[in-house]
Design a protein around this nucleic acid. Sequence first.
DNA 1: GCAAAAGTGTTGAACTTACACCCATGT
DNA 2: ACATGGGTGTAAGTTCAACACTTTTGC
Lengths: 229, 229
Amino acid sequence: MLHPYSKHDQHYVALDVIIFGFDREKLRLLLIERDFHPEKGKWSLMGGFLGKDENPDQAAARVLEELTGLTGIYLEQLAVYGDVNRDTAGRVISITYYALINSENFNNSYHSEYKGTWFVINQVPELIFDHNIMVDKALRRLRRRCRTQPVGLELLPEKFTLPQLLRLYEAIYQQEFDKRNFRKKILSFGVLKKLEEKDKEGSRKGAFLYQFEKEKYAEMIEKGVQFEI
Amino acid sequence: MLHPYSKHDQHYVALDVIIFGFDREKLRLLLIERDFHPEKGKWSLMGGFLGKDENPDQAAARVLEELTGLTGIYLEQLAVYGDVNRDTAGRVISITYYALINSENFNNSYHSEYKGTWFVINQVPELIFDHNIMVDKALRRLRRRCRTQPVGLELLPEKFTLPQLLRLYEAIYQQEFDKRNFRKKILSFGVLKKLEEKDKEGSRKGAFLYQFEKEKYAEMIEKGVQFEI
DNA sequence: GCAAAAGTGTTGAACTTACACCCATGT
DNA sequence: ACATGGGTGTAAGTTCAACACTTTTGC
């Protein structure tokens, strides 16, 4: 018996991952130089093809690991790009994901067959195909997520200071915030635990370290609280 | 020469459309009884397969038209569902869209080869595969959209009254709003034009009709205004 | 002792929420 | 004349935005 779907077309399905990182100063994007034709040598997002035995989420995690060696990273599906001629080499449907990694976890000692380069978010070069559009959309989504979920914390080390967190938000939104109002707001959510330790890297005085309290956050989500910044 | 992508797998790509409608009273969802195996006879979203010469957006519009006969409808891409075993008949990657149609435009005189049935949004039956999950996600997205964009207007006739609009928002959010505060908020955006006519359907007194002013809305978006309800 | 970043409170403005009565009309 | 849904304003509470000085420490 003929398979019920066999009269339909099949397509290549790709994953492209928009990888954001933060280095205590600037929000950055990890790009690679494409190593195969077409468009070989041009800047590109890290991508790969969906295999027949993997879910898109798994495939995106695989692609991310191939470039960075990192696992267990925050990944969120963004959108599908499927214009007939978006890829000059053939019909490819691309599912995009964005990833948030903190730069302390990403050390350049990991040698993948690809070499990634970090670009400051407002100095992203011209990318192949529709990848610039994907990056713009990812940034808008990241900003939205940060308004309602403590997703920014993915970009910081486990222990961080409030000035660091402030700089992260300023990097994401590309605008300055009043530090007093910011502290009030962030601490009012009650999901950050102040530690006794100080971080002395950034100043002579040193800034207290904080930690994200996952359990309290889970409770609040349970109750339906919103985290508007 | 071998095609650069030829070593990768290909997949069936489907579109599933979550069709919302409003009939001046309740928010409804348009479903069909699946007419082919597997799962023949069960309730399902309207769907179809992506052809090799069409964009996903076009394909979603085609699928919607096949069921309703309507064109030029608001359609927004939602997400991709691609778990290996989500479709019991084979590997299918499904791109979901949601559509907003107003019930006056949809008259049942259109006879497609499919027959759609409207379900009140909180009485949706069990659907095939992961379609219930898709519907939940669509509803959450619709609620979010309505907060920041006058998308609810897609669900109403061109001329509508404020009590109608209020009932629409109450149907979408499944909660009651204070009519005085609602009017203030909605009118404060300055994108509704009050007409001289009244609609006498809903009451003896009659309610003034309003119209959405697309140009003013475009101006405000230009300036970056948000439409928080 | 001074430079550099961390930390801390208050006030006015804007917005949100709660709430109750009169109006116009068809029957 | 009455029943039905349409239309309107205000006051209290809450949240947001603006703003400047003191503290700690390494050099």
